[in-house]
C-alpha cells in the first residue's frame, strides 16, 4: 500500500501516449494510455485509472508534476517541467551509468547528454516525421504488420532492403512499390529500422556522445530498431525495463525532490486544487 502521506505523481503527456508514474511508500504504480486525437483531454482519465490502481485518492497525492508536449494547462498538476529535464532525471535513477539518452517518441526524437542526472546538452527533431515513432507506425500500417511485431520480424530478415527516401511520405510509397516488386516484408522492416537509425544517429551525433548510451521512448521497445541503433553507434546500448515511463518517472522524482527541499527550508510548496478536469487547450 502506497503511503498516502507522501506520494508523488509524474504525468507525461506525449503526442501519442500519456504516462503516469506514482511513487511513494516504497511502491511505484504506473499506467500508460493513449493521448488520443483530442489532444490531452484523456490525461485525467489515465490519471484517474493510475490512482485507482495505486489505491489512493487524488487529494492524497503530495505533489504532481506534468511533463511532455501536452503538459500545459493540466488543471490538477502543481508544476510543469520540460520533458528533457524529466527524462534526464528518470534515466539517471534507472541507469546511472548512462550519459547519453536517445529518446524515440511518437512524434519526435531527441538526444540528451546527462551528467549526474542533470541535462548538459540536447538535440531534438520534432519538425520532420523521419526518425520518429510516427515513421514506424506508417510503415507498419502500409505493410500490414502490427507495430509490436516489427522488431521480431526484422530480426528474421535475410538482407535489409535499402530505403532511399528519408521523408516518411515518400518512404511509404517506396516500401509499397518494393513490396509489389517482391521484396520480402522482413527485409523491408529491417531496412526501415536502418533508415530510422541513420536519421537518429545524424541528429544525436551533434552531441558529444559519451557512453553508456541508453534508448528510451516507444522506439526502445522495438528490438530491431535497438539493434540497428547499436550498429550505427558502434556500441551496445542500454534499455530501461519500461522505456516509455522514463519521463513520467523523472517528473515524479523531480516533484519529490522539490517537496523535500521545500520541507527542509520550512516553506512548504503550494499545491493546486485537486480537480480531475480536462486540460484546457488555450490560456484564458
Amino acid at each position: 500500500m502506497t503511503d498516502p502521506k507522501t506520494c508523488f505523481a509524474g504525468l507525461d503527456i506525449g503526442s501519442t501516449m500519456t504516462k503516469v508514474v506514482i511513487v511513494g511508500g516504497g511502491q511505484e504504480t504506473s499506467l500508460i494510455g493513449p493521448t488520443g486525437p483530442e489532444h490531452r483531454k484523456l490525461a485525467n482519465r489515465v490519471m484517474e485509472e493510475a490512482l485507482r490502481r495505486a489505491g489512493i485518492a487524488l487529494g492524497d497525492v503530495t505533489y504532481i508534476v506534468a511533463t511532455g508536449y501536452g503538459r500545459i494547462n493540466v488543471p490538477f498538476a502543481d508544476r510543469q517541467v520540460t520533458e528533457i529535464t524529466c527524462h534526464a532525471k528518470g534515466l539517471f535513477s534507472l541507469l546511472p551509468a548512462a550519459h547519453t539518452v536517445v529518446d524515440i517518441g511518437g512524434q519526435d526524437s531527441k538526444g540528451i547528454r546527462i551528467e549526474n542526472g542533470k541535462v548538459v546538452d540536447f538535440v531534438m527533431n520534432d519538425k520532420c516525421a523521419a526518425g520518429t515513432g510516427r515513421f514506424l507506425e506508417i510503415i507498419a500500417e502500409a505493410l500490414g504488420v502490427a507495430l509490436d511485431q516489427l522488431g521480431e520480424r526484422s530480426l528474421a530478415a535475410e538482407k535489409p532492403a535499402v530505403i532511399g527516401n528519408m521523408c516518411t511520405v515518400f518512404a511509404e510509397q517506396e516500401v509499397i512499390s518494393q513490396l509489389a516488386n517482391g521484396e520480402p516484408v522482413n527485409n523491408l522492416i529491417a531496412g526501415i529500422h536502418q533508415a530510422i537509425a541513420a536519421r537518429v544517429y545524424a541528429l544525436v551525433r551533434k552531441l558529444k556522445i559519451k557512453p553508456d548510451i541508453a534508448i528510451t521512448g516507444g522506439g526502445a521497445k522495438n528490438i530491431g530498431l535497438v539493434k540497428a541503433l547499436e550498429s550505427m553507434f558502434g556500441s551496445p546500448v542500454l534499455v530501461p525495463r519500461e522505456p516509455l515511463l522514463t519521463g513520467a518517472l523523472g517528473a515524479a522524482l523531480i516533484g519529490r525532490e522539490m517537496y523535500e527541499k521545500a520541507a527542509r527550508s520550512g516553506a512548504p510548496l503550494a499545491t493546486r486544487a485537486r480537480v480531475l478536469g480536462e486540460a484546457k487547450l488555450f490560456n484564458n
Binding site: 503526442s15 486525437p37 483530442e38 489532444h39 512524434q107 520534432d126 519538425k127 520532420c128 516525421a129 510516427r134 515513421f135 506508417i138 521523408c167 516518411t168 511520405v169
Partner: peptide
Amino acid sequence: TTGCAVFAESEAVS
C-alpha cells in the same frame, strides 16, 4: 507548427 506533411496530418486531426 510544422512543414512536415505527416505531422501536419495529425495536427489537422487535432
